[in-house]
Design a protein around this nucleic acid. Structure first.
Length: 829
RNA sequence: GCGAGAGUGGCGGAACUGGUAGACGCACUGGCCUUAGGAGCCAGCGCCCUCGGCGUAGGGGUUCGACUCCCCUCUCUCGCACCA
């Protein structure tokens, strides 16, 4: 190889050159254009933690391929990026370094932005946003105030999930296996006042739309459905003996109500203390409640604690039977779900069964499964399935489904029961006792109560002149210049809310704000959001299957109902990509198996890194990192580079030959080229980038075998040129700088990014000669070369005449011959 | 326990509606070229003893034909987990 500098693949010079050109030419800036179909591609925006990691590289490489592919196919593609910039790490870093979260955050953004630029992603940087910018978060304060006025936000004191190491409260979705989603510390329950979004008002709509989100993976939809956890049942009032109020319970099994032998209520249930007091069991019951509370705090989330309970001394009356049922308080009953009280049917509920055995409570069978005869005395576990009712007064003989309806409506008529739907989903608690977030725009007035900040006074800016305590306590709580204010109603002295919003609020609507960069008068411009939304393709990690994706769906609906959006769902299609792993486990600093994108880009260039991360695995699967594999990708680019540069003069001068070469090496290469265009286009449509790349590699192998130095029958220049241009274009979404450079080198004056995707010609791709497989009894015995569409009888004859086939059918009778056109012949003997 | 998904060479992974299992790449082996090569080129590469046989976690089944469809078992990953 010569030492000519221009023949060397100098990736860093090439990458710098094209990144500059794209920027100068504003190649990826878009505006509303009603003459083109729009395509909004979005990847989950990063938290500015300091540096990008391989997970980002993979996520954004996948997205960039799609964005560039769609552009080349004539779409008006919006591909924005920004920063999920509020959050705890910034605050913790500030405490540690005696600095400020804003400084830390913006420095990280600067650095990570330079990293993303070096990867060559086709972002419209004009639309960049950072959620910690008052120009961003001011709008969610406006939403907050408007939602509060609409009654969709409220304040309550409740048991919350407290993370001591983060010194803040977490939403239910942010608790994973009883631990904090961020720091993995065990959470502890704590009574606190906080602000809640009424996501439960939208539970049904969120659930119903799960069936309509056809572009989402089933896995994610299933997780969301389970999280919402809708159950249909009945609420029944059990009068409490000698008390003027009744005990409300929720059950999904009204058909078993005649089998109830006791009642269980949550330890926190107000009735527990009341009954105990009345019956002189105060001491015992309060000890039990205290004991349960502390046990719950220390409980190992992996093991189910043993059922425990204590009699409260009170009795409830089953309104269907008149039976007096003892009321227990039990550790397995949850105050947060349903009504915090259940009827206990030991014969048909495993938990009640275990409890009844332990405390020697009677068991009464009221459901008989088909083909069996249950006996309360001998059963070893509850029968939870359906069956035929027995010992249930007028309902005996009905099956479970029928009885559920009949028993509920009987109760409805009598006024002590009603149909009820219960959800597992709880309202979204968004108060965070930390500094680095959007202030909650509310004012506490000792006279007028809670008042929203008037819309004209927004935003409530996060003060920057603060100092941080080592404890992590938010400086806002003690910052008089911040919290001291006047009541918007009476003008008297009042106190500002000092909690900030959960950062998932910011990420719930950023996708919409990208449509309206720089808009200062209103949060969203209808014209822009109506044109761009919904996001056509959203891409991110599956770890957000519930958290972010559920919140964003909810937010879309409330913004729609406030009149800001005209869509029901934010993301039409969703792709959840797998993790990047190395040596069998997730890359992480603690395991010491991280690969730094900067090092790789320096060593091999961004195009190689992108190519490998797309080649090594299909997007939804985990990707096992391999340093050797990266070298392989790099070698492939080298091979193309050498081949093209060797033939540069020829390629610049090659004319256009006949549209369809008649035969010989021209026809063969022309065919392979079009087969590749077809394969790659199909693979792109289904995001199978790994197989698309291997198809391009095949074409390259075919080309260098046929048109290389050693080949005897070199195809005409114009066909080689066609193949080379196809390779460059097909590869360009994955290795964009590299392909732009070669495109220019072979004589193109305009940018490859502006070119149109090659057109597939089915006629060119058609095979004339086909290899058919000959089987005897399904085993491969020979091959046959025939012209495409060859007659069936002729093919049979040829197959039987094959010498190797003859060996296997010699002394046997042929029973059947199956011919699959252009594919195979199976001779059954 | 419940729900979802997945098990294919030494490795990452291919295989369209059932029709040549292992594309493409990595690793490995041999050769060429070279002062050298971690560069490049050529060839080989599922397993077993030659004709041939066996092979897609294991066992059954449907079919002329099964990685693909059906049943059972095992393993792994992920999600939910006393939700009444």
């Amino acid at each position: 190889m010569s030492n000519d500098k221009s023949l060397k693949y100098d990736f860093s010079a090439i990458e710098r050159k094209w990144q500059r050109k794209w920027q100068e030419n504003k190649t990826f800036q878009v505006e509303i254009d009603r003459n083109l179909p729009k395509y909004y591609l979005l990847e989950m925006f990063p938290y500015p933690s300091g540096r990008i990691h391989m997970g980002h590289v993979r996520n954004y490489s996948i997205g960039d391929v799609i964005a560039r592919y769609k552009r080349m196919n004539g779409f008006n593609v919006m591909h924005p990026i920004g920063w999920d910039a509020f959050g705890l790490p910034a605050e913790n870093a500030a405490i540690k370094n005696n600095s400020h979260p804003a400084k830390w955050t913006y420095e990280n953004i600067d650095y990570m932005k330079s990293q993303l630029r070096k990867m060559g992603f086709s972002y419209d940087w004009n639309r960049e946003l950072a959620t910690c910018d008052p120009e961003y978060y001011r709008w969610e304060q406006l939403f907050f105030v408007q939602l509060y006025k609409k009654g969709l936000i409220y304040q309550k004191v409740t048991t919350v999930n407290w993370c001591e190491s983060c010194r803040t409260v977490l939403a239910n979705e942010q608790v994973i296996d009883g631990c904090c989603w961020r720091c993995d510390q065990q959470i502890i329950p704590r009574e606190m006042n906080g602000w809640f979004f009424k996501i439960t008002d939208y539970a049904d709509e969120l659930l119903d739309w799960c069936d309509k989100l056809t572009g989402w993976p089933d896995k994610v939809l299933t997780m969301q459905r389970n999280w919402i956890g809708k159950s249909l049942g009945a609420e029944v009032d059990f009068p409490v003996d000698g008390w003027d109020e009744s005990l409300k319970i929720f059950t999904t099994r009204p058909d078993t109500i005649f089998g109830a032998t006791f009642m269980s209520i949550a330890p926190e249930h107000p009735l527990a203390a009341k009954l105990a007091q009345k019956n002189g069991l105060q001491k015992e019951v309060s000890e039990f409640v205290e004991h349960t509370r502390s046990a719950r705090q220390q409980q190992n989330p992996d093991v189910e604690p043993e059922k425990e309970g204590i009699f409260t001394g009170g009795y409830a009356v089953n309104p269907y039977t008149g039976d007096k049922l003892p009321i227990y308080t039990a550790n397995f009953v949850l105050m947060e779900y349903g009504t915090g009280a259940v009827m206990a049917v030991p014969a048909h509920d495993q938990r009640d069964f275990e409890f009844a055995h332990k405390y020697d409570i009677p068991i009464k069978v009221v459901i008989q499964p088909p083909g069996a005869e249950l006996d309360a005395a001998t059963m070893t576990e509850a029968h939870e399935g359906p069956g035929i009712l027995v010992d249930s007064a007028g309902f005996s003989g009905m099956d479970s489904a029928e009885a559920k309806k009949a028993i509920t409506s009987h109760g409805e008529e009598q006024g002590f029961a009603r149909q009820r739907i219960t959800y597992r989903l709880r309202d979204w608690g968004i108060s965070r006792q930390r500094y680095w977030g959007s202030p909650i725009p509310m004012i506490h007035c000792p006279r007028c109560g809670v008042q929203p900040v008037p819309e004209d006074d927004l935003p409530v800016e996060l003060p920057t002149d603060v100092t941080f305590a080592q404890s992590g306590k938010s400086p806002l709580h003690d910052l008089e210049s911040f919290y001291k204010t006047s009541c918007p109603k009476c003008g008297g002295e009042a106190r500002r809310e000092t909690d900030t919003m959960d950062t998932f609020v910011e990420s719930s609507w950023y996708y919409a704000r990208y449509c309206c960069p720089g808009e200062r008068r209103e949060p969203l411009r209808r014209e822009a959001v109506d044109y761009w939304l919904p996001v056509d393709q959203y891409i991110g990690g599956v770890e957000h299957a519930i958290l972010h994706l559920l919140y964003a769906r909810f937010f879309t609906k409330i913004l729609r109902d406030l009149g800001y959006l005209g869509i029901d769902e934010p993301f039409a299609d969703l792709l959840t990509q797998g993790m990047v792993i190395k040596d069998g486990t997730k890359m992480s600093k603690s395991k010491g198996n991280v690969v730094d994108p900067d090092d790789l880009v320096q060593q091999y260039g961004a195009d190689t890194v992108r190519l490998f991360s797309l080649f090594a695995a299909p997007p939804e699967r985990d990707l096992e990192w391999s340093d050797k594999g990266v070298e392989g990708a790099h070698r492939f680019l080298h091979r193309i580079f050498r081949f093209v540069m060797d033939k540069r003069e020829m390629l610049q001068n090659a004319g256009n030959g006949p549209v369809a070469p008649a035969g010989g090496p021209e026809r063969d290469l022309h065919r392979k080229t079009h087969q590749t265009i077809s394969k790659v286009s199909r693979d792109f449509a289904s995001f199978h980038f790994n197989t698309a790349i291997s198809a391009i590699m095949e074409l390259m192998n075919f080309l260098s075998a046929g048109a290389g130095e050693s080949s005897k029958t070199i195809p005409a220049d114009f066909v080689i040129k066609e193949a080379v241009e196809a390779i460059i274009q097909l590869l360009s979404p994955m290795a964009p700088h590299f392909c732009e450079e070669l495109w220019e080198q072979i004589g193109h004056k305009s940018q490859l990014s502006e070119s149109r995707w090659p057109v597939f010609d089915p006629e060119a791709a058609r095979e004339d000669e086909i290899t058919m497989v000959v089987q005897v009894n399904g085993k491969l015995r020979g091959r046959l070369s025939v012209s495409a569409g060859e007659d069936e009888e002729k093919v049979k004859e040829m197959a039987l005449a094959e010498p190797n086939v003859g060996k296997f059918i010699a002394d046997k009778t042929i029973r059947k011959i199956i011919v699959v056109k252009d594919k195979l012949i199976n001779i059954v003997v």
